[in-house]
């Protein structure tokens, strides 16, 4: 861990100002990921701005019938919030599928969005990683890539190659819910749809998000439509708790008179960001629950998927998980 200075601003503007002034500074909230990365010498901020005292912890209704989740509300407080549980049970379930109770008590909603990949090579400074050391190469590409991405990877140029995944469960549900991220920066406030918040590795695998230097996430807005009646979050992993998703699927459906009127499907554990494929979702709309072809939807979502050896099984696993999640959301799952 490198040496760093520390400050604890009292309001958002001061926090943003401090980040703008200190080159190499980082915000710290729960610290559940950042501190690990600092100990491993992966993150080397020279200044930490502790934002835990900012007034960003509330969860409140928005004027358009949605819900605003404060960036500093903890994952646990969010998952167990009455409004979230009743109106956005998909989000509640996804959050509770992640990490452990202790981590969820510390981790914040804003921090969750910024957590970094759990790629082994990213964490190990004794190996190459283009995300950690631009241009050093990708250890995972020809290495042990069981947990790595199958969609939207960057695998052609060795110097920008990256097959890392985004590890969040919460973000997968937010993608399905089409959440809006509220950001304050040096130039004031702006909003970013969740789909545009995280990015694919492309030629700059070291960038995880589209958030600009100096910007601070202040809240996550959930639109009114929360799919409380027909939803499913399925997470497949190597043990029952405290393991990142090999594949996860968030599904939200709206069904009226047995007919699907809206469908959202987001995948986790398969790409550098939560993965959606609008044309696959469109295949469901207008169909009755019984005539909808879930298998074709799954095939469409996984079209273009590519395995790298150890992770090739994820392609088939993801398809099966999508089918099951759609059945569960549509309440047509065979009783188990």
């Amino acid at each position: 861990m490198n040496r760093f200075s520390y400050s604890r601003p009292g309001n958002v503007d001061t926090a943003v100002g401090e980040l703008t002034r200190h080159e190499g500074a980082k915000f710290i909230a729960g610290g559940t990921n950042l501190l690990d990365l600092m100990k491993e010498n992966v993150e080397r901020p020279n200044h930490l701005i502790d934002i835990n005292h900012l007034a960003l912890k509330t969860i409140e209704d928005t004027e358009d019938g949605g819900l605003r989740l404060g960036a500093l509300a903890t994952n646990a407080d969010t998952a167990y919030n009455d409004k979230v549980e009743s109106r956005y049970p998909l989000l509640s379930q996804a959050i509770l599928a992640g990490a452990s109770a202790q981590l969820r008590n510390m981790a914040t909603n804003g921090g969750n969005l910024f957590q970094r990949t759990r790629c082994y090579y990213f964490y190990d400074t004794g190996t190459p990683c283009n995300k950690r050391e631009p241009g050093s190469g990708c250890g995972a590409f020809n290495g042990f890539n069981r947990i790595h991405a199958i969609l939207g990877t960057s695998d052609e140029n060795p110097e920008t190659r990256c097959i890392a995944t985004h590890p969040s469960d919460m973000a997968v549900a937010l993608a399905a819910l089409e959440a809006i991220i509220r950001v304050t920066g040096p130039n004031g406030e702006r909003t970013v749809p969740i789909a545009d918040f995280h990015r694919l590795p492309g030629n700059e695998p070291w960038l995880d998000t589209t958030i600009q230097p100096g910007e601070l996430v202040t809240a996550i807005d959930l639109p009114a439509k929360g799919f409380p009646d027909y939803y499913a979050y399925i997470k497949l992993r190597d043990r029952q708790s405290y393991a990142f998703a090999l594949v996860s699927v968030a599904v939200g459906l709206e069904i009226e008179n047995n007919q699907i009127t809206d469908a959202r499907i987001a995948l986790g554990g398969v790409a550098h960001k939560p993965w959606r494929k609008p044309e696959a979702e469109a295949m469901l709309v207008g169909k009755t629950v019984t005539e909808a072809d879930f298998q074709s939807v799954a095939e469409t979502i996984l079209s273009g998927a590519k395995g790298y050896g150890h992770n090739t099984f994820k392609i088939e696993l993801a398809k099966r998980a999508i089918v099951r999640a759609l059945q569960r959301a549509a309440k047509t799952e065979t009783e188990s």
């Binding site: 082994y120 090579y121 190990d124 004794g126 190996t127 250890g139 020809n142 290495g143 042990f144 069981r146």
Partner: peptide
């Protein structure tokens, strides 16, 4: 799990 490219255990 060892990555034999590096002869190094990776999930440490």
């Amino acid at each position: 799990v060892m990555d034999h490219q590096f002869g190094r255990f990776m999930n440490h």
